[in-house]
Amino acid sequence: MAASRASLHQVARNSATSSIRALSRGVDPEGSQRKGRTLLQFLADHFCDVEAVREYLLRKQALKVHRKNRSFTYIKERYGPYVAGAYFVLKQGGAVKFQDNEWIQSGRGLSSLEFRKFREVPVQAVDASGCAINYQGLDNLLALKELQSLSLQRCPHVDDWCLGRLHQLADSLQELSLAGCPRVSERGLACLHHLQNLRRLDISDLPAVSSPDLTQILVEEMLPNCEVRGSDWAQGLKLGLEEQSRDPASSPVPA
């Protein structure tokens, strides 16, 4: 009697846990993240109002990036693409170098006098490290036809789709840095073959690339005139050799 009651309880408990599992469906099939489930997640699972609010906030985040990447049509019409591009980069927090001029940092900005002064001066180099540039915002940079050096280091919104657009700068671009971009993968790097004038390319520290060494070799093959900086695969080889040579010395000599 007691045994049967105990088993009944066991069943009840099992069904309870299984229904909890069913409730958290979709979020984490392995259950590895379940420990980290927050109250907010729980509420969102049960109340569509909470979910809607969170969805709205998510959308608002994306919208913010879009808003930051709008083109300045008025400046472009009035002062030409160079000034508009420079203004865009400075506003994003980057730095710009006009031809035969010094670097202009973002903190300083452009004065109205400079707007007029740089109207016909092409932009030579852009350093947009860490800026929130995305596919749309790239329009401003692609209009700078004499751009020789472009740095997109650690840009969180630069992805493979963006790299597909860089062919528009193929005639002028000599230096490109993509180091640390979290969304750039080997698939996007494949279409850099359009940039035939490229002399220096930095593709180090790309977390989305599955096999960085192989990718670097393939990119070097694809762009024979370009110096590619990536993870130092040659160094890795040397290290490996050293380890191998050290191994027999450290291991006891078989009798």
Binding site: S15, A22, L23, H46, C48
Partner: peptide, 11 residues
């Protein structure tokens, strides 16, 4: 179990 079935979205 009762609480869960009463909650919206419950089984």
């Amino acid at each position: 179990k009762k609480i869960q079935s009463i909650l919206p979205g419950g089984a």
